[in-house]
Design a protein around this nucleic acid. Sequence first.
DNA 1: GCGAATGTAGAATGATTATTCTACATCGTC
DNA 2: GACGATGTAGAATAATCATTCTACATTCGC
Lengths: 169, 169
Amino acid sequence: MSEIQEKIASGLERHFAERGFAEPSVPELRDAAGVSLRTLYKYTPSRSEMVYAALEHRHRRYLEELFADLPTEQQKVPAALIDRVAGWMRTQASHGCLFHAAVAAAPEDARLMALLKDHKAQVAERAAAVAGIPGREIELTLILEGLTQTFPLYGEATVIRAKQLAATL
Amino acid sequence: MSEIQEKIASGLERHFAERGFAEPSVPELRDAAGVSLRTLYKYTPSRSEMVYAALEHRHRRYLEELFADLPTEQQKVPAALIDRVAGWMRTQASHGCLFHAAVAAAPEDARLMALLKDHKAQVAERAAAVAGIPGREIELTLILEGLTQTFPLYGEATVIRAKQLAATL
DNA sequence: GCGAATGTAGAATGATTATTCTACATCGTC
DNA sequence: GACGATGTAGAATAATCATTCTACATTCGC
């Protein structure tokens, strides 16, 4: 991935996260990407491709944020993951999961749905592996997804309750 | 609410649930509502109002689906609520929560955000009350929201895990 | 049975949009 | 220093869309 591709993808990601997927026009996305219309269409030949590029970038950043430098004691991992997700919510995702937002905006786009499932499956699999509880992907996903959706409503109190639930695993 | 208002709101709700909030044009919504353009604009004077009407209708239907005829033994209520949510996912909400979808499509619409918070708060409050565990709204919301988001990925297995988590409350 | 209210059908309007195209600038390489 | 690749700036195109407006039908209380 070249420098300009990275610049485009990260600009698009930030803009879609701020303004949603339905509203922004392509000229608006061009400004967010910081390139010309011609260059934007060269690397992302349609508005849909701009969405895909933003999500792929998001996916890489999210994995990095969640799984880099986790504690080595496995029983501390679930609580650490919950803190990471909460930190992500505070700083990056005040409106909830970007993948769900994209699918919600275009529920008939099969490629979007595939990106969502892939993203969630990878997060769940890595989380279960690093916590040393393979086979409990569903519970981990349930708690992390619940946290992501509930945090905007109840704020920091949600983090404590999520950890208590995770402690029962 | 007159018969025609009910007809419009329920048609809009079904259509937005199927096709998302970004895509459908107003003529498409008119067909879904089963009235003329003039009548549609009379009761919902802008496309945004059509969204609000659909969500208010959804809210009423969801409360009915979740809380009607629950078991009277309070310790059976959390599992029963989980079954209700799962049933709703199977039949009505294959793409996830309609309120989150609406907010995702237009994250700057303050009225949408207010509708979402109101909806979730009412569900949480009633759930905690009927389960006889006031003060545990956050945990219940976390599990029910987690279920809603996770069910499309892991299917029926999610229901079992959600009940196990709820049993620890 | 008449008139006011309320409905249907769909054309006109005015804006907005995604995408393509034209003209020009910059830069590293031979 | 010329050239091919790659960039910027923004106008042109063609389609779509939300909203309003016109003309006509139906219903119902009186």
